[in-house]
Design a protein around this nucleic acid. Structure first.
Lengths: 337, 337
DNA sequence: CTGTTAGCGCATTCAT
DNA sequence: ATGAATGCGCTAACAG
């Protein structure tokens, strides 16, 4: 009740006329509990004084915390938000506190955050999103990942393989391949691919999968254009491709936000979708399910992937790899007249 | 390097042949630094051993942490994600670690999280989003807020007034009023309002502001329908309003996600926007800027609001109220033929 | 300038 | 069943 009055366990114990040990036992549980009468006395004293255990001290004493970390590239990107949401729900169910960091796609920042989590003695961490395959920074990240693991904490990565930790992989290749076959089945023939940065495994896999799917249908892309893995990247790539005068009838963007950017670019040029050009994306971002024409895409169980990642990170054990299937969702943006 | 080997400051000190105090001084800084030679010895020993300071112990020793908390209703909602992003950027600049909790709109959970932050001795916290004005739970929240503040931590609320802490308020009323006047100026006359839960101040203020703006133009709404503050809420409210056969020519949804839901409902019924019905929202969610027809809305400086909230929370001091202006953004969804 | 020492708040043996 | 004492890892006086 008083201003700035750090009430400690000792205060509570004294007011209740017991030892700190006893107070600790009733307020924390775990151990064999004291006699009912004492319990009440302690509890009464505790909230009379407005006692709040000092989590830092507890952590130090039992050398273990209940905090887990989440690393994402950008929490505003709905893809990451969805996965992070799954991690957070799972954490909440286990009474774990979450430290969330947005790395803004900066490898240095990411490494620094991981180190911070280690300093916090976090119980586990989940890293979401694929890293650029730049040899040097990848090595430095791997090194920090090693230290993290060695500290005894658990770790799981989503969409990033090659690290000695649990891995959750969306089946990007298979999903993209199936999408390609579905699109071909619909009658589309002249495909243009809007790829992401070559350094991102996720972007590469989706492109390659799509290519493989086309091949299955005896087709190959008319054009491939690359851009950032963002809305603006999709917009720019689409413009580029159009400027080059590529003779395409359907565009596949390696993720939904790029696809939406591309649709805006087409609209700006008065190109009707799907009338003159079909458009498809990947992810099935919930927030984008109401765009018009409805975007054909490949659905990923984002939230579940997040949940599972946390479970694996907490469980620890030998590194494992779990793949989550993707499912094609056909909507109006690729409907044939 | 070794598995599960908690390297402590003492280990480093011994290996460097100095005292823990010295080791602490060079590894942490702050104090006057020891002679260069010792510094190197300590640093060398530190990373030879792979030393990582124990943040818990540090916090306990200097009774202060560098963690701040963020409470949002739902991190998947782009509105919250945008504000949280601002908070996180500001935190990053100050080298503060962020604990993020999604309360899933559960008051109990929110209170529990605040208590956890207190237990963690968080330096400050930012609560985003307006709470339901349910008397009892509001009182309990207020109580926990009081405790939090009393613990010496800073606090700032975004979109929630009435608490004895710093407050960031978007100017919902003025923004909605200006939107109403703009729309009226465009020639729209028969307005339907898709309101949010009456218990949410944000939803109420926007509706009331819109009403006031209409009044300024000598108009009043033809119909008002309420729904959840979500995409589905907007969809349902729009259907409801249509089913009642309300004679409207323009719909105002109190936020963008509701507006987008409403647009889908209209589309499902073959109602052209803006041909037969205009539609407007509020927030100017970035992810929705590519919907078609482009959604007329009211832009809020979401990220800046988040940044400012953190600054205020960290600064502490007397509770203040800062209002952020909103700006009408006219797009195709309310264009008159 | 550097080393010694006493807490920080709590969990936990070990006695009683 | 309870209390006393020790240590968790580190910082901050206080000495030397």
């Amino acid at each position: 009740m008083n201003l700035r009055a750090p009430v400690t366990l000792l205060d509570v114990a004294q007011r209740a006329g017991v030892s700190v040990a006893t107070a600790s036992r009733v307020l924390n549980g775990g151990d064999r509990v004291p006699r009912p009468e004492l319990q009440e006395r302690v509890r009464a004293a505790a909230d009379a004084l407005g006692y709040t255990p000092n989590a830092q001290a507890q952590a130090l004493a039992k050398s273990s915390t209940n905090v887990v970390g989440i690393l994402v590239h950008d929490i505003e990107d709905p893809y990451f938000a969805a996965i992070a949401n799954g991690v957070m729900r799972a954490a909440d169910e286990r009474n774990l506190l979450v430290m969330l960091a947005s790395t803004f796609r900066d490898a240095e920042r990411e490494i620094a955050y991981l180190a911070s989590l280690r300093a916090q003695r976090a119980r586990a961490a989940v890293m979401i999103g694929s890293r650029r395959t730049d040899a040097e920074s990848l090595a430095r990240t791997a090194s920090e990942v090693g230290s993290f693991l060695n500290s005894g904490a658990g770790l799981a990565l989503v969409s990033q393989s090659g690290m000695p930790a649990h891995t959750i992989e969306p089946d990007n290749r298979a999903g993209a391949a199936e999408l390609a076959r579905s699109l071909a089945g619909l009658g589309w023939r002249k495909f243009g691919i809007l790829g992401g940065p070559e350094a991102l495994a996720t972007a590469r896999d989706r492109r390659d999968g799509f290519l493989a799917g086309l091949a299955d249908s005896g087709l190959e892309p008319v054009a491939v254009e690359y851009g950032d893995f963002t809305r603006d990247g999709g917009y720019a790539a689409a413009e580029e491709l159009l400027d080059r005068g590529a003779d395409v009838d359907c565009l596949f963007a390696v993720n939904d936000v790029m696809a939406v950017g591309a649709m805006s670019a087409l609209r700006a040029r008065g190109i009707d979708v799907p009338g003159r050009l079909g458009v498809a994306g990947f992810d099935d971002i919930a927030t984008l399910r109401d765009v018009w024409p409805g975007l054909t895409t490949v659905r990923l169980p984002l939230e579940q992937m997040g949940r599972r990642a946390l479970e694996l990170a907490i469980e620890g054990g030998e590194p494992s790899v779990e793949t989550f299937k993707a499912e094609v969702v056909l909507r109006e943006s690729t409907a044939r007249a």
